[in-house]
Every structure is written in C-alpha cells, then in structure tokens.
C-alpha cells in the first residue's frame, strides 16, 4: 500500500495544554483511513494540522514531522496545500449563497474559469456526490433550503471540485438522519477510487462499513492501527474499556 501522508512525533500544544503528544500515523493512498477515538482525543485537531488550519489559530503550536507526497507539509504553500487536502466538517457549513455558487466557490478563488467550463465542473462535482439529479433545476436556490444530508453532500462536492488528493471528513454524518447517513457512507466507499479519504468517526458500525484501515487515537496518541476494524494486542486497560463501550 502506498503511503500518501506520514506523520511522525506530532505534538500540538495550546498554551501549556498538550492536545496531541507524539503521534505517529500513516495514511494510505486510495483507501478509507479511519480514525476513531474518544471525544477530546484530538481527532479534529489532527485533521486541522493536516491542512494547516492550525495556522489560523495563533494560540496553537504544532511540532513534528509530517510529509505529504514525500514533501514536508511546512514546505507547501498553505493555500496550495488546502486545495490538495480538502475538508468536510462535522456540521454541514454551506455558505449563505446559492447551491451553484457554493460549489463554484473554491474554483473561483483559484482561477478565472469561463461560464461553460464552470457549469460543467459544478455539474460534475454535484454528480460525484449524487446530488445533481436532486437539484439540477434549482441550482440558483439558496443552499440553506437543502436538507441536512443534501447540505453535507453539497459541502463534499464543494471540496471535490478542486480535485484534491485527500479528502478529510470530520464526523460527517453525526448530525444526519439514518437515511442521509447511509447515502454518505455509500458515497465514501466510492470516493476512494479517485481520492484518499481520512474519516473521523465515533461510530464503530460506520467504520466497519467503510474503513480499509483504522487507527485508534487515545489521549493524543495513536494507540492501535489495523487493517479492517479489529484491534488486537491492546495492553492499556483504559483503551480496552473504551473499545468495549464503543462495541456496545
């Protein structure tokens, strides 16, 4: 399996507080790489390190060695990096504008694109998330008129239009109903054809459904990794208890 991201000895501090302390993880290309772990374990922080959203949080210090496609993360231009590592958030966050403008937004920032090309790219991105048929006649509609599940797929389309290498999803279904959740899970399985997916979830059954490679984060460290979702040889009793709770 090809590694697209390698993190070694990552440390993240907020003032005196250690959020992540010495974390190692490999992310495999064209796989669904899942990260599970208790609330407050540092999952979202880890994702924010990867696209350097942490640069915008002046109180946060990040140390360690992260390579993405063989190149140190800090050697990337931050804007360039964020186009290559897309992010979807826990709560759908469409911008207050039309469906079309939402999807076109990132591309518009990047380049001057003719209307016809933009139309095509927007359609493409919406098709990729299975939203196009639902909204094709209403592309000018305000994005807030979509259902929660549709909004989340819109946010995925908005990230995909930039053709990222990696798509990070931070508990993308935790605010959605079971049907919308199922649709997004199916979508995730399809996405790995073209993209590397990093999925953060609390939900073991979701991990079992979509995950190719699963990492368990606990107290700011990866304490276990495994192909599939079964963790063996865990020593720490707290971690065992946590897994037990998850399984219930």
């Amino acid at each position: 399996m090809e590694k697209i991201i390698e993190i070694r000895d990552l440390k993240v501090n907020a003032g005196k507080k250690e959020i992540i302390n010495g974390l190692d993880i490999d992310i495999y290309a064209n796989r669904v790489n899942t990260i599970v772990g208790p609330s407050g374990g540092g999952k979202s922080t880890l994702l924010r390190c990867l696209n350097r959203l942490t640069d915008l949080e002046p109180g946060i210090r990040v140390n360690g060695n992260v390579t993405f496609q063989g190149k140190n993360l800090m050697d990337y231009d931050d804007v360039e990096l964020r186009r290559e590592i897309g992010m979807v958030f826990q709560r759908p966050n469409p911008f207050p504008m039309s469906i079309y403008d939402n999807v076109a937004f990132g591309l518009k920032l990047q380049a001057k694109v003719s209307k016809s090309v933009m139309d095509m790219m927007v359609q493409n991105a919406l098709e990729e998330v299975g939203l196009y048929d639902e909204v094709r006649d209403n592309l000018k509609r305000h994005a807030n008129t979509l259902s929660g599940g549709q909004q989340q797929r819109l946010c995925i389309a908005r990230a995909l239009i930039l053709r990222p290498k990696v798509l990070m999803m931070d508990e993308p279904t935790s605010s959605l109903d079971p049907v919308s959740k199922g649709r997004i899970e199916d979508l995730i399985k399809g996405l790995k054809e073209k993209y590397t997916v990093i999925l953060v979830t609390h939900d073991m059954s979701q991990a079992r459904k979509v995950s190719d490679y699963t990492n368990l984060i606990y107290n700011g460290k990866i304490v276990a990794s495994s192909e599939g979702t079964e963790f063996t040889d865990i020593e720490d009793q707290d971690v065992k208890d946590y897994l037990g709770e998850l399984a219930e």
Binding site: N51, V79, F105
Partner: peptide
C-alpha cells in the same frame, strides 16, 4: 462570524485577505 464558515472558506483555499474580504462584504 461563525467559525464553521471561516474554516470552510479557508479550507477551500481562501487566503486571509480573501477571507477578510468575504466577511466584510457578506457576513
């Protein structure tokens, strides 16, 4: 302005300047 929106904008490749411009003219 909502943090989700700010982070969303930056995640899509908005520079600090573009973020500020967007906030000042929209939110």
């Amino acid at each position: 302005a909502p943090k989700e929106i700010k982070q969303g904008l930056v995640s899509l490749g908005a520079t600090k300047w573009e973020l500020g411009k967007y906030l000042a003219t929209n939110y």
